[in-house]
Design a protein around this nucleic acid. Structure first.
Lengths: 338, 338
DNA sequence: GAACGACCTTGAAACGTTTCATCGTTCGTT
DNA sequence: AACGAACGATGAAACGTTTCAAGGTCGTTC
């Protein structure tokens, strides 16, 4: 396989290799004549820059790593898409990895990406990676946390204000006349879940209304968990049932919807309102379109990538937290006429 | 930033750089004593192999590229996950790109990945890339087509038998007593769509029953297109309505389901059965769980990756087509008691 | 007409690996 | 005791690029 090198181009164009390199990277510093000849030769010979050699010599890599918790979760897919598109615009390749909620797998990707000397790392961590990220940073690889508030750590982060989101969600339910609210989700060790619940309680407390907020804990935030929780609610005495359910995310909400609508005894939203979180694309496509709190998922990915690039260019920038506010999206699962 | 190189390790362990390299890549050819010293030094110094230098010198890259049509389509997400997991097991990084149905974007990723000298390419093409893939192959980069039968081209492919899938879907509908079948999907220029339709017609023809197969064309295979098609069906005179709908994919089917169930006049499956294709994870989570044709999406991705690696190791292998058979998954949208 | 800048170009060094021909030891055989 | 195979270790060359000090060629200025 005859790989065409910068040397071949130089010979063909009748210039030195240094000039070819300049034509490629600093076209202004090359005479129009030489530039044209180099470009013609590149076309004729089919030269394609070797990124490995470029990286090796210059120390600058044109790739970044993305490690998400679960590639099956729509939210992370959107984040990834936002980051990938933003990277593509800059000619940067995205190394993709999913930890599948397995800390060992997460470490494996961290190692792999370090070997590739990625310019930086976008990560939604599952295990405790703060020491490792610190180490990477000392070795010149910056990280930005995604969907996680870094707070104490010396790392930038891009996330959503889950407390505010929970609060807005429940304020909406209260404003539409609901008073017996069930929060469905879990595990309650997950920061995103507890923040949303905390926000829900704030809304209830500050309303000055006689509101109850009951917690129906699930083991995961999945459709199946939502279905199971829905069946538990249906098995209750009618008087004990909530008149609104706030789900920790849309997957749980869709599960609830399936259980309740499928059962047929309760109408949504007349008998019970259902509120989700994330506004994944399937939320609007549900049998009863789902009200939800929209997260700017692709924007989160794009912003995280931009911050990462800025920081990797100037290693002295200090970490910062970017927090987006979620947005209420009202559909028929909470308001019949929506 | 003090990058630790193989030279530093050699010095620290009291051996030559060649021995360090051997310890890393051919541990059997190094004496136990030297091996131990090298490994100790690696740990102590925090040495991390530089993949760019390795790649440059050896000509072997530890990364492959994946280009999908649309990162929003669940099917491709599953394919990508299958490929990524398989790659991770081998310590290979996955460069991820989505063409977003834009041929220019697709070309951009092809160029980018060539610069990275990926070992090979997994691609679900949108534009006409056969010439480009041929060129890449001559330059040592093999490709495997995903979700596309290569047929004429000298490229391997991994796909699903869409004709058989369409046939099995309609056979199921006929077996459950349906006779007036509507096929909903589009555009009819898309091979996957026309194959599924062709299969549907085969089933109808071969059944020997008085069956009608009507085509309701949509512009895309999306939830929105499904909703629109559903509304069109509802607007018809009851006598003109089909008793079963076979959707080109699950997104369309979910749209149909939303329109029909939401409307409330028709019951699913009593009045109309709905059959999807792909068996995406949300199919089971729909208000009325959706019958569908399951594609082994992650297996497709994993297989494509394996084939790619085999071919890139031995450039003389001849391209082959791998075709999987889809599998009928019966749920309540076609059979009330399922 | 000499001196000076401005502007391009040059060519060798360097990046961190792997490769490979060569060299030293050791040990079993004769 | 001599030989040779087997085994490990060595170190310089090479991969394809970027970088950079140095050199070359003009035109301008005094």
């Amino acid at each position: 396989m005859g790989q065409v090198s910068v040397r071949d181009v130089a010979r063909h164009a009748g210039v030195s290799v240094g000039t070819v390199s300049n034509a490629l990277n600093r076209p202004d510093s090359v005479s129009p004549d030489a530039l044209a000849r180099v470009r013609a030769s590149i076309g004729e010979l089919g030269y394609v820059r070797n990124e490995a050699a470029r990286n090796l010599r210059s120390g600058v890599t044109a790739s970044i790593g993305l490690i998400v918790v679960d590639s099956q979760v729509p939210f992370f897919q959107d984040v990834g898409r936002g980051a990938a598109d933003e990277a593509a615009d800059r000619g940067i390749a995205l190394l993709y990895g999913s930890s599948a909620e397995d800390p060992a797998r997460e470490r494996m990707y961290l190692d792999l990406f370090e070997e590739h000397r990625v310019r930086g790392l976008l990560i939604a961590p599952v295990g405790d990676v703060s020491r490792r990220l610190h180490q990477l940073r000392e070795r010149g690889i910056r990280s930005v946390l995604v969907d996680r508030f870094s707070g104490e750590e010396p790392v930038s982060s891009v996330s959503v204000d889950n407390v505010a989101g929970g609060r807005m969600a429940v304020e909406h339910l209260l404003a539409t006349g609901r008073r017996r609210i069930a929060f469905v989700g879990g595990p309650l060790t997950l920061r995103q879940v507890t923040d949303r619940l905390a926000g829900a309680r704030v809304a209830a407390d500050e309303s000055g209304l006689p509101v109850s907020v009951e917690v129906v804990a699930t083991e995961t935030t999945s459709v199946a968990a939502g279905v199971a929780a829905g069946e538990r609610l249906l098995a209750r005495e009618p008087a004990d049932r909530p008149d609104a359910v706030f789900a920790a995310n849309d997957l749980v909400a869709l599960g609830l919807l399936q259980a309740i609508v499928g059962d047929g005894r309760l109408r949504v939203p007349e008998d019970v309102a259902i509120m989700g979180f994330d506004d994944i694309s399937f939320a609007a496509a549900a049998a009863v379109p789902l009200s939800s709190m929209r997260q700017p998922s692709t924007t989160i990915g794009a912003t995280a990538l931009r911050i990462l690039l800025e920081e990797s260019e100037d290693p002295d920038t200090i970490p910062r937290q970017t927090v987006y506010q979620p947005e209420l999206v009202v559909r028929r699962s909470t308001v019949a006429s929506a």
